[in-house]
Amino acid sequence: MLSNVKEYFRPKTVEEAFEMMEADREHSIFLSGGTIVALMGSSRIERIIDLKSLRLDSVSIKEDEIVVGATTTVEAFRKDPLMRKEFGDFFYDSFSLVGSWQIRNMATIGGSIAPKLGWSDVSACLLATGAGLMVYGPDGYRRIMLSDYFALPAGEKPLITHIIIKKDGWVSAFEKFSKTTFDIATVNVAISVRPERGRIKAARVVCGSRPQYPMRFETIENALEELEINDVMPSIVRSLVFDNFTGGSNMLASFEYRKHLASVMAQKAAEKIKEMVR
């Protein structure tokens, strides 16, 4: 539990929030949904900067992109009519596996990405949809790919203000393995494909909880190009993931167990995609 908090800020603008953090990064923390902050056992944190006051909690459409405010809750996001219209059941079903109803009512999309948690189902799904981020840092606003955000140096911590998802007609599926319903993923897999005349024209294959942060596997994606979407396709996806999976071991699972699970989850996700495309 936090025990040494002396100041609680409610910034009105993104710029103000970032300046507050920069003023004393060592002793400060951003609070978005609060599910991580409230559980922190730290006497180091003296300043909490509550981002909910920024009111970045809407989902809107801008030309061919969906723009999601970073403090939109996971539950509001998955049930948003715009998200359901543009992405069908993908986010609705996938994010139903994120914690409980109560947790999803609190946890935010931005707050699920920012700590670069290895097991984040939110990050895995967004990576598979090719999502981008609008972030604010020392040089102002800039747009980066979510995959690039994960690769930022440890000291570079811009504030995520929006998540941007293209409406590009890709078909996506997600599978997760966890030991109990609310447990974090032992492994999660998200796959998106762009189908064209019964074949995979392009693919994004993401494995998370490796246990490192979710990442795309370009070797697998390249191998899937032009593959026919038929009954054999899911087992090919499974073999490719098994042969190319990279990750490690931790208390949840060994590398070998993860690799096996990832390949099984990938096959299940590919089965879903096959059914959706047909």
Partner: peptide, 11 residues
């Protein structure tokens, strides 16, 4: 519905 164990009072 939220878990009050995960909410700080200022929120």
């Amino acid at each position: 519905a939220v878990n009050s164990c995960l909410v700080l009072v200022p929120e």
